[in-house]
Write a protein that binds this DNA or RNA. Structure first.
Length: 1155
RNA sequence: GCCUUGGUGGCGGAAUUGGUAGACGCGCUGGAUUCAAAAUCCAGUUCUUUCGAGAGUGUGGGUUCGAUUCCCACCCAAGGUACCA
């Protein structure tokens, strides 16, 4: 009986489905569901990346990873594990919606159809998925939990002290008691300080607005990547080269109110976590780059500007310099003496505080009796903009004046705190610790209202003495404030030009150096020299502080800028020539010309520079991240609705008990006429909650309801992005039908995490980063037990297509309807042969009415043809070609002498437009799923990209036929042939056969553990070839061999295994009810003893080159081996009479003769 | 530019700790079988060669008795990333 793969495969697939062979059991399942079955087995979770069911269906490249994971899952079942191997669909997404816009079909309908196609294709390949656990992100039962997680995020804030997310209610209770002074949170950076008293006096709305700045998901006016063509916002990773990844539409920057996710709070933990997981290095590297941690310092440079009214005197006498600490106003000259007098005659309280401030090592500098505008303040920390006033009794009677003064100081960006004399004298420690807290929480930020200094971030504080100018991003908010009247025109013109240039242009045009001087100067923190402030578009507004201290000798961009504008380039490196380029090597750096940093290396100098800056209160060590908070709103229909409504413009979460909030029906999937997202078209999209009942109603219905005791309002119009559902689906598989909880405690504690995750590397900075973020959040909240969800991850390589080309003759760009076999061409228009078929073409040209001269004008081009019309490697089936495209119908084809018409093949990405797509269905039809599985693995290492070439599949296919024959003699009997082994009294295996089996067990087991599936397939081929040659009929050999092959080619293995069990060919239909298939048969045990050899065929090398081999007993000693080798005639021939200098003998390995 | 991965016959690829380079398969060549084809089976297939042998794993060096494997420098390809201070 021959190998009828189609029949066998269909029957076994049906059998597995009916018997739920691959169902994984949770320990808490009821016994009728098979609960407890997994208890005595260790768990193993194998997962494929969530597929998006696209309309095009699967091509041969898609199942590669699924086949690999399936082999591993099946292998683990043989190894006695309770294996969870689920599959489902990431079924929300753009393409279905685009299609809906074009055709009016509901995305749910097309998605359902696409899923059916996917499922049919997947089923045909024989995967061992537990389909009872299937989930779909677009299913309300699933997205109920997506919405639920969103609410959890909304109700959380990130506590940097405990380094985890905590409930927002804890934050509120701290605010009530202490205000926000002691809070160390990952939050917005423009938060004002407040006391408990202030908090308690804030209105509900004010409180909510403040809380929003702490929540892990929050609404904010963000600059987003708006894609007008798609009508939506895109995430950074959805943009490739400045255009949308899907569709290639232009993208512009735009401000919009959006939900954001505070992923930045997790930046460090996302980075640290990478060290604990076994993921591919390139993937870890791209996450590391994406997070973009850089260690350095913030340095603040005071701006030298001129006090009103003193401009002239100052500019003449002081050469346009004025130190940054001179913060006095127009009347400074009148007040300065008074201040000096007060300084020398402090009150007892002032003196006590001053001594404490000096001695407590506060890392910041305080000044006393200092001029701020027209006031003399008691104490001020300029870098933190904090003023401390110590009030005597007299202040009780002048509270109003004091308030006015405070208001003015506040406007100047200072914070004022007041203490009474008796507080300072009575309890100096409390006063100092309050000041400390204030200082710690005061941001080193110089946002609005702090126009007198420029903060920068630098990774090279050691090069601070090399600063010769500063550069601000053109968008920097200080630019307009500091620009001098003379430079105003030039600066404004420059800003206008840069604003007009799109992001894309700016990115493409890196080489052009441009910038403008603002006319303003900043003061160097140490030398107190003035530094010119420029603007330039090489500085990005969005990174760091949007300003840089430019060190031209140490940074190439600064160097180029300085050269271009002829700015001074001081050299601060010892023994380095900077006449041609900047010197950026940290390792070799020795600092010079830098005062206290001279002679230090990078590390030392950095540390010292930061220390000195801190002493001055003009800098601090800082870690900066490139990672930005993730925008979570999409102006789309086909996505998860937010569980959010708006009341007085503030977002409100809907109570969990009302989830899911279902996606409403709309008539049109386009944005509304007034530019609102598609959900704006929904007739009913208001939330109304009254009498403990919540529902979605129309606007009218909401407005007509009684305002008393009612909750609700307009629902959110945005939907969630594609990555929402895929950020936790792997956990939901553990308990996918639970309606009470996202998953049960028992389920998550049993399955814990994914042991093996296989998928494409394209998700490196999208899905794989966001999902790690959510996992860490869920971990903080005690919802999941581990903070990394996938222990091991493998990126499968892409399968490329092998395109086919034929050559078409053209005259003046017009097709002559004549095609030539490709052997004549090296490429288009480049022929290599002039033999008879080549000459034949001229006759055909003449028939087409071309003159001799015309013929000389004929040119050729190569065109793609469908790879499915090929007969073999490169022979075209002309009949099929004509069927494929009408234009070939009446065409002439110039063939080879042997009548064949050949095409050229070339490896390219598999894509529809290149006609090189191969459908797995066609392969299954022609060769079977087992052949497809084996061939995909046989192509090469899993992680590497490799070309598909259908012609090569005959190799694995004939292997399967040989395997079949090894078990069933090639009898012609129509009723299932003779089995080559007798069931009961099969002959005992020979030593040679046992050796083949055990060497195969060893190799295959090692290969699977190393995910080296390609080499296993070769091993199977070798084993079957050898056993066939040995005419093996022993059940002790043939049965275990099937278990080895079963993960790779499960259908044929199941069938032959059944045959072996019954001693004859048996149809699936005839199996007894209690039949146990191959799936859980224990993996054969490798036994070393069968591989022990008594002799070795030694390679004999001369000077390291193998010249011949020699069979010797392994019992021989080194000397005996040497003697035997030297006695060999070929040895003497090689040596030609010379005496060897040395003979290396490695017993069991090699003999090398040197001489 | 930077980071990562890789470079071995006509092609996909093997060689697990430094020890017989090219396993296994495709393709190709020749043969058997057949009226013929498909299928199947057998033999050969890195290159050069005076048939003795010699060279050979991107290039050039090095370490070693011995290097595809380890070290240094360079070249090329693919992927990621990009004025990130």
């Amino acid at each position: 009986m021959s190998y009828h793969f189609n029949d066998i495969e269909a029957k076994w697939q049906k059998y597995w489905a009916e018997n739920q062979t691959f169902k994984a059991y949770n320990p808490d399942d009821s016994p009728s569901l098979g609960g407890g079955q997994g208890e005595d087995k260790p768990k193993y979770y194998v997962l494929d990346m969530f597929p998006y069911p696209s309309g095009a269906g699967l091509h041969v490249g898609h199942p590669l990873g699924y086949i690999a994971s399936d082999i591993y899952a099946r292998y683990k079942r043989h190894k006695g594990f309770n294996v969870l191997h689920p599959q489902g669909y990431d079924s929300f997404g753009l393409p279905a919606e685009q299609y809906a816009i074009q055709t009016g079909q509901h995305p749910a309908v097309t998605t359902e159809e696409n899923i059916k196609t996917y499922r049919r294709q997947l089923d045909r390949i024989g995967f061992s998925f537990d389909w009872s656990r299937e989930v779909r992100t677009s299913d309300p039962k699933f997205y109920k939990w997506t919405q639920w997680i969103f609410i959890q995020l909304y109700n959380s804030w990130y506590n940097n002290d405990s380094d985890k997310a905590e409930d927002i209610s804890e934050l509120v209770s701290i605010f009530k008691k202490e205000g926000n002074i002691t809070i160390n949170a990952s939050a917005d950076d423009n938060i004002e300080q407040f006391t408990a008293e202030q908090w308690n006096n804030f209105s509900e709305k004010e409180q909510q607005e403040i809380l929003a700045k702490y929540r892990l998901t929050y609404l904010s006016e963000t600059e987003v990547n708006w894609c007008p063509a798609l009508g939506t916002v895109l995430a950074n990773d959805e943009i490739v080269n400045g255009v949308s990844e899907r569709g290639g539409h232009p993208v512009v920057r735009k401000k919009m109110k959006q939900w954001s996710m505070r992923i930045t709070a997790y930046a460090q933990r996302l980075l640290d976590g990478l060290n604990t997981i076994d993921w591919p290095q390139p993937l870890k590297d791209s996450q590391t780059n994406w997070i973009g941690r850089s260690e350095g310092a913030t340095v603040t440079f005071p701006i030298l500007s001129f006090p009103k009214g003193e401009e002239k005197a100052d500019s003449e006498s002081q050469d346009k310099k004025r130190p940054g600490y001179m913060t006095g106003g127009n009347n400074s000259h009148l007040l300065i003496e008074k201040a000096q007098e007060m300084r020398s005659n402090p009150t007892p309280a002032e003196d006590a505080l001053w001594q404490s401030l000096k001695s407590k090592n506060l890392d910041v500098k305080f000044r006393r009796q200092h001029l701020i505008d027209d006031f003399i303040v008691d104490f001020v920390c300029l870098s933190k903009k904090l003023i401390i006033e110590v009030d005597g009794k007299v202040h009780d009677s002048q509270q109003e004046q004091d308030q006015q003064r405070t208001d003015i100081l506040n406007k100047l960006g200072y914070k004022v705190i007041r203490f009474k004399n008796e507080e300072v004298i009575g309890n100096i420690d409390t006063v100092v610790s309050t000041i400390k807290k204030e200082l710690e929480s005061a941001p080193l930020s110089f946002g609005k209202g702090s126009g007198d200094r420029i903060p920068v971030f630098t990774t090279r504080p050691d090069t601070i003495f090399g600063v010769s100018f500063m550069t601000l991003a053109p968008e920097h908010e200080l630019v307009s404030q500091i620009t001098t009247p003379e430079q105003k025109e030039a600066v404004e013109a420059y800003i206008e030009v840069t604003a007009k240039r799109s992001e894309r242009e700016r990115m493409a045009d890196v080489k052009t150096i441009s910038g403008v001087f603002t006319g303003a100067y900043a003061e160097h923190p140490f030398t107190k020299e003035p530094i010119p402030i420029w603007i330039g578009d090489y500085v990005l507004a969005g990174y760091g502080t949007g300003a840089v201290m430019s060190v031209p000798c140490g940074d190439q961009r600064d160097y180029d800028f300085a050269k271009h504008f002829d700015i001074d380039i001081p050299n601060i490196f010892e023994g380095v020539d900077i006449s041609e380029e900047a010197f950026a090597d940290k390792e070799k750096t020795i600092i010079a010309n830098s005062d206290f940093l001279n002679g230090m290396n990078y590390k030392k100098a950095t540390k010292r520079a930061i220390y000195e800056l801190e002493q001055l209160g003009q800098g601090k060590g800082k870690i900066n991240y490139r990672l930005r908070d993730a925008v979570f709103s999409r102006q789309r229909y086909w996505g998860e609705p937010f569980p959010v409504y708006y009341k007085d413009g503030l977002p409100q979460m809907i109570d969990e008990k009302y989830l899911p909030i279902r996606l409403p029906e709309v008539e049109k999937y386009l944005p509304t006429e007034d530019g609102k997202p598609p959900l704006g078209n929904a007739k009913k999209w208001h939330w109304l909650e009254e009498n403990g009942e919540g529902k979605i109603v129309s606007k009218e219905e909401f407005e007509n309801s009684s305002p008393l005791g009612r909750l609700g309002g307009a629902l959110e119009l945005n939907t969630m992005p594609g990555w929402a559902g895929s950020s936790y689906y792997f956990n939901r598989y553990m308990d996918p039908h639970n309606e009470e909880e996202i998953f049960s405690k028992e389920a998550i504690n049993y399955w814990q995490d994914v042991d093996l995750y296989i998928g494409g590397s394209e998700h490196a900075t999208g899905h794989l980063l966001y999902s790690r973020f959510w996992q860490k959040f869920l971990f903080d909240k005690g919802i999941v037990p581990v903070d990394e969800y996938a222990k091991k991850l493998i990126n499968q390589g892409m399968i490329l297509g092998t395109s086919a080309f034929i050559y078409e003759a053209l005259h003046k760009d017009k097709s002559l309807n004549l095609y030539l076999t490709s052997r004549f061409f090296d490429g288009p228009d480049h022929y290599t042969s002039l033999d008879s078929p080549w000459k034949e073409k001229d006759n055909l040209f003449k028939k087409r009415g071309l003159s001799e001269e015309n013929i000389r004008e004929v040119s050729y081009r190569n065109i793609h043809i469908d790879v499915n019309v090929l007969k073999s490697q490169n022979e075209v089936d002309l009949e099929k070609l004509k069927e494929w495209r009408e234009e070939f119908e009446g065409a002439d084809f110039i063939k080879e002498n042997n009548g064949k018409f050949l095409c050229k093949r070339e490896v390219e990405k598999m894509s529809k437009s290149k006609y090189n797509v191969v459908n797995p269905d066609a392969i299954c039809e022609q060769y079977g799923a087992d052949s497809l599985r084996l061939y995909e693995m046989f192509l090469g290492p899993l992680e590497q990209a490799k070309p598909w070439n259908t012609a090569g599949i005959t190799g694995v296919h004939s292997f399967l036929k040989k395997l079949w024959k090894l078990y069933l003699s090639p009898s012609n009997s129509p009723q299932g042939g003779e089995l080559t082994l007798e069931n009961k009294d099969s002959s005992p295996p020979s030593e040679e056969e046992l050796k083949v089996l055990h060497k195969t067990i060893k190799k295959v087991e090692e290969d699977i553990e190393n995910f080296s599936f390609n080499t296993s397939v070769s091993t199977f081929m070798i084993a079957v070839n050898e056993l066939t040659a040995q005419k093996c009929t022993s059940r002790e050999i043939l049965e275990p061999l099937l278990i080895l092959i079963s993960p790779y080619a499960p259908h044929i293995a199941e069938q032959l295994y059944a045959n072996v069990q019954f001693g004859k060919h048996i149809d699936v239909e005839d199996l007894p009810k209690n039949y146990k298939g191959i799936t859980f048969a224990p993996f054969p045990r490798f036994e070393e003893k069968y591989l022990v050899e008594s002799t070795k065929n030694y390679p004999i090398s001369f000077n390291g080159k193998m010249r011949f081999t020699m069979e010797l007993s392994l019992n021989l000693s080194k000397d005996e081996i040497e003697a035997a080798v030297m006695a060999h005639e070929k040895t003497q021939a090689q040596l030609q009479g010379r005496m060897p200098k040395k003979v290396i003998v490695v017993p069991g390995k090699i003999v090398n003769i040197v001489g």
